Simulated assay, not measured.
Amino acid sequence: MTALQKVTNTLESLPTTAFLVLDQGRTVLDHGTTTTPSFLASARKSVLSVLYGPAVADGTIRLEATLDELGIDDIGGLLPEERRATVRDLLTSRSGVYHPATAAAGPEDDAPARGTQPPGTLFLYNNWDFNTLGTIFERCTGRPISPRWPKTWRHRSVSRTSTRLVSGCSAAPTSLSTSRTTSSSPPATSAGSARCCCSRAGGTTGKSSPHPG
């Protein structure tokens, strides 16, 4: 039995409607109704993870950069313990930040009390983490996450969902609310100032510093 056959057998044992694998434009596996539109939820999480790969590989984004170093804050403020969460913690849904998110996914309803779980310890499917990752990606890469990508990025297009993301990676202090704003309203003002901790920053403010290399 080939590896692809094993994958196909697994797919048939699950409620999978469609599964498509492409490698440099070549179809590797086409299973199910891949040509028929169907309901799809939480796709941005997988796409964001893919987009992070090149940005991490070239040093634009550091996985160990903390929310504090990046100047991330939210309405009402984050707790000191929550500010210690890293980009890696957010990508693995282990941030320990249980600040209310726009359009909660559901599991957040059972989240522990804020400040009780150190970053990197407890897995919890949490939309706040991915709302924040979108903001970090746009600020550090200068690339928008929206249906209107620059031509060179259209093949990586992903739609915005529940949060208004802030573009650019400015070294100047700015107000930033990560996950309590919506795509139809401007960013809410928060107590914290946005600072860069990524290699493309022209400078830094406060105690943050550019990626060391």
Rank of each mutant, 00 (worst) to 15 (best):
G202Y: 08
W153G: 06
S49E: 08
L124H: 10
R180T: 11
V158T: 11
R83I: 02
L11F: 01
F123C: 00
A104Q: 08
S185D: 12
S49G: 15
E12N: 08
P212N: 09
G59F: 00
Q5T: 15
H211T: 09
L14P: 00
P15F: 02
E81W: 12
A188V: 05
R143K: 11
A171F: 14
N131I: 07
T121I: 06
T16G: 14
V50S: 13
P212L: 05
D30N: 10
T135D: 10
P54D: 08
G168K: 02
G134W: 00
R160I: 09
Q117P: 02
A172I: 05
A201P: 01
S177W: 08
T132F: 02
Q24F: 13
A85I: 03
P100D: 06
I61G: 00
T163I: 13
T92E: 09
R160H: 08
E108N: 08
W128P: 00
A57I: 07
P210M: 02
T174P: 01
I136R: 06
A41F: 14
V28H: 05
S157V: 11
L165P: 00
G76K: 07
L29F: 05
F39Q: 03
T152N: 05
G96L: 02
S179C: 11
A3Y: 11
T35S: 14
H155P: 02
A3I: 10
G32D: 02
S199T: 09
S209F: 06
G213I: 01
G32Q: 00
L90H: 04
E81V: 15
R139F: 03
S185H: 14
T181M: 02
T86N: 05
S199L: 14
Y52W: 08
S193I: 12
A85P: 04
Y125C: 01
R200G: 09
D89A: 13
R143D: 14
G32R: 00
T178Q: 05
V56E: 01
D129A: 02
S38G: 14
L70V: 15
V87C: 01
P80A: 10
E69W: 06
T116G: 06
T17P: 10
K151H: 13
T174W: 11
L133M: 03
S177Q: 10
L70R: 05
I75G: 04
M1C: 11
G202N: 12
P119I: 05
L14I: 03
T182P: 00
A57H: 13
G59S: 01
R200M: 07
S157E: 04
T163L: 05
P187L: 12
T17G: 12
T181V: 07
V28D: 01
N127Q: 14
L4T: 12
E82D: 10
L78N: 01
A113M: 07
T2L: 14
T132E: 04
P212C: 07
S38I: 12
T178N: 06
R94Y: 13
